[in-house]
Write a protein that binds this DNA or RNA. Sequence first.
RNA 1: GCGCCAGUAGCUCAAUAGGAUAGAGCGUUAGCCUCCGGAGCUAAAGGUUGUGGGUUCGAUUCCCGCCUGGCGCACCA
Length: 550
Amino acid sequence: MKPQEYVRNALQTAITRSAFVLSDPPYISLERPKQEELGDLSTPLAMSLSKTLGMAPRKIAEIITQNLQLDPDYVESVEIAGPGFINFFYAKPCLQNTVLEIIRDGAAYGRSDMGRGRRIQLEFVSANPTGPLNIVSARAAAVGDILTNCYRAAGYDARREFYVNDAGRQIRLLGVSLSARYMSELGKTEAVPEEGYHGLYLVDLAREIVQRDGDRHAGMEAEARAVLFSQMALEFMLQRQRASLDKYRVVYDLWFRESALRDSGAQEEILRRMAAAGLSYEEDGAVWFRSSQFGDEKDRVLVTQNGEPTYFLIDIAYHEDKFQRGFEKVIDFWGPDHHGYIDRMRAALLALGHPGESFDVSIIQQVNLLRSGKTVKMSKRAGEIIEMDELIEEVGVDAARFYFVDRRISQPMDFDIDLATKQSDENPVFYVQYAHARICNILRYAEEQGVTIPAQADTATLGNLQEIQVIKKLLEFPDVIQRVVVHTEPHRVSNYVQEVAAVFHRFYHEHRVVTEDRTLTLARLMLARATRQVLANAFELLGISAPENM
RNA sequence: GCGCCAGUAGCUCAAUAGGAUAGAGCGUUAGCCUCCGGAGCUAAAGGUUGUGGGUUCGAUUCCCGCCUGGCGCACCA
């Protein structure tokens, strides 16, 4: 058993035995004190119970402590400190044993059953298929992908989904734009409409079409040609986006097409339900949803005066579809320009009977592009973007993914192109990968020296400061994953992995692993293996490689 | 004007569910290779957590006001 669990269980029993008058069993918060001297694990429990019990925190702490029964192999000592913290100090046998447990658990170390198999869906990127994926999508892709990995590790049945906006005005415009490029390519002047797509990728595509089909489409009626070219452009873009994501190691469970949803008439079903429940009304020739009754600031249009379904209505139908498919929880990742949209979406889902907790939106803040210290404004229509492919090309997948996930998603971030390309050697991803490669090297070296490494070995000789610090750090891994999921904060994984690397580098610097002392050597090799395992498991979550050499 | 998000070391960012003396990297300065990989390690300097109040035993974290920046405020998507 992990010492955290052990302490939690012991505290639970102690509380019961203390016979406090409580309506509910209290949540036991366990944390690691910032200062090591204070203990390995700490709970502010006594302070939080103070008010409800009407007792001084230290008094409560004393009662709890008296009722604690602790195995000295797990916990060496307990202290009451400060305003009423109860602090625990791990016993060495337990820590030494942890090393072997990690090795035994292997790839499963860090996983938990927190989610109990709950079905959850993460929808991210969902960029319009009107151009190549850009650097903003790269952030969303990294974050969404890594979070999904963490959800799975925490025991959820989590799925990735990409929503394809393949219907509506944007696609028509795309077709018109491509058609214009095609005609220009054939020497017939036809301007790309001002609100159309001016990116050069359409010129390239037009050229390809000319090479393949010649002037076969030139004689068509303009409107029909635009429709045809919409489809060509769409499929081309989708295939290209998928290829980019593939290279970026993001694989979706489903690419959901808006057109399929529309064809199924799902939006009409929503309208029927809303009308039947009195959730909608007609005014000025449009159909409105009473979203203001569900927390939105005003009512919203579902069907326009022209009889067109709004994007909002389609989106409601899409989200309803997600729930129909059996997801208990749905998380959307949107850009900051859509945050005003959250309230109405939640209102709609509430109105349709889905509890508030079943739907979450996470806003991934923008990526400001800097080139030689100056902000670059990106606009897809004007064609000024940094493509995801360029990014992957220039900085590599590992570095890119790590860079994007290494900060909180709520924090806007600057992406300095010069820095990312020129100084990529100083990217922290190399630091952590280096730790992994170094451990592999130590294991190789040991074997070269004729040491056969058994599956398990006695670890009782581990006990110096650096060794203990490594073990304690490895011990945190399962908690890190759970916190990532609870807070939707994948950056914790990359932060953690840097801490693991640091603590191991420190150990390595102070102590030799392979020495004349066979028992000690084997024990330290176990420590190295456990560390490598944790790094590898974390890299797996991050979707970066675990190099054996660098 | 209203709403949402952010503001932490020179720079890029952390800070575990409200916890104890706010931490890393980069950069700067000073050190460490007869020794398993120096893409590493050690140390120093660097802070009124934008600002003023409030709640609390305790606030970077929660609440209110203000300042600054970003983004929204469509019968567009």
